[in-house]
Amino acid sequence: MTTVRLRPLSIVPEGEEVLVGDPETGTFVTIPAIGGLVIEALTRGATIDEVAAEAEAAAGQPVDIPAFVATLTELGFVDDGSRPEAAATAPIQGKRWVAGVSERVVRPLFGRVAWCCYAAIAVFCVAVFVVRPDLFPSAARDAFPFGDIGLSAVLLVPFSMATMALHECGHWLAARAAGLRARFGVDRRMMLLVFETDLTQVWGVPRKQRYSPLLGGMAVDVVLLGALLAASLAVDDAAVSAALAVGIYLKLAGFLWQCMVFLRTDLYAVMVNLLGCHNLWRVKTLLLRRAFGRLSAAETEELASASAADRRAGSWFRWVWLAGFAGVLGWFALFVLPVVAVVLRWAADGMSAGPLAGRFWYCLVCAALLLGPYLLAAGLAVRERRSRT
């Protein structure tokens, strides 16, 4: 007469399968529909024998329930009275899932009406660029807009950090509106440092409800860009226009960034959901290794058990990833490193006066603001490599 107590799990039908997970630990898996039936029976308090009989009746053949319960235990889905902890998904990350605001308060911000407004603002932005192409940024004019490298750093970096933080808050608030919680961290994409919001709990809601949390960050970006463009149309003061142009430049660069799905951006997550994939990032790696004949026996087995949707998407996404990776390396070498060299030379010049001069510290702080993120990303990469060996 054994029963098994399960933790509060989310169960979402997903095509012919069921997506089951523990939102508290961020562990989610897909199982065949019969597995969903077993979990529902166990949750109801049915004994192992009763569950086995029910499952056999549904499947038309005996189902190995003890083996499945062992798997559920391994996944941490069985309630053993302890408080579970979510595994880290980023190198620097808060442990706690953040609620913070009530669902009811933020729901109007991410309902159907709100999303229609965000779409309308996006159309407005495109229309402004069509009518006033001079407002479209040019890198030469807007990247170091204030003439002085130091002034650009002092003004740009904090603005950029603030809008990135707002973008992440957009994800979090949209997740709250869907009744989910998120957690914040810092991660890297190749050599770039990023703020990251863990939205893994979206697997606990039906497929259509996942888009709002995934696109919540870009909704904030669109509203900001719309405001910057509206302000640009309204003012004719040259200095204010130049400052607004920098903001527009940064926002558009942010949209370009999101399009780089091979860097696992927001639009990558949207694409995964559209294609019905669940483990594309890993399957892409396995398929790429296979293409270069570097698949181990264990990996061959892992690939064989991957879903058809993941393998289908992975077969072309691996090349998108490879081309994107090479493209970013090229961009970094051609466009970023020369700027880094200019900044270093500028800082070295300014610091040659020695630490008693005010300019020494000004240049040091500016160089740290501009180059700090790259150094931190490099540090994270080194740490990853060490923990792997």
């Binding site: 997506l19 997970g21 989610f28 898996v29 897909t30 199982i31 065949p32 019969i34 499947a59 053949q61 005996p62 189902v63 190995d64 083996a67 499945f68 798997t71 996944l75 998904t89 980023a90 950029s160 809008t163 990135m164 933080a165 992440e168 991660d187 994409r189 770039l192 990023v194 703020f195 990251e196 919001t197 863990d198 939205l199 893994t200 979206v202 697997w203 995934l214 919540g216 960050g217 970006d221 940064l250 926002k251 660069a253 942010g254 960034w257 860097l263 696992r264 951006t265 927001d266 997550a269 995964v272 669940h278 483990n279 594309l280 990032w281 890993r282 058990s305 991957a306 879903s307 993120p373």
Partner: peptide, 18 residues
């Protein structure tokens, strides 16, 4: 029959404008 389980990846949202 045994019930096969497939792993589901984590979902990471990022912002950047570098």
């Amino acid at each position: 029959m045994t019930i096969e389980v497939r792993k589901v990846e984590s979902v990471k949202a990022t912002g950047n404008d570098a």
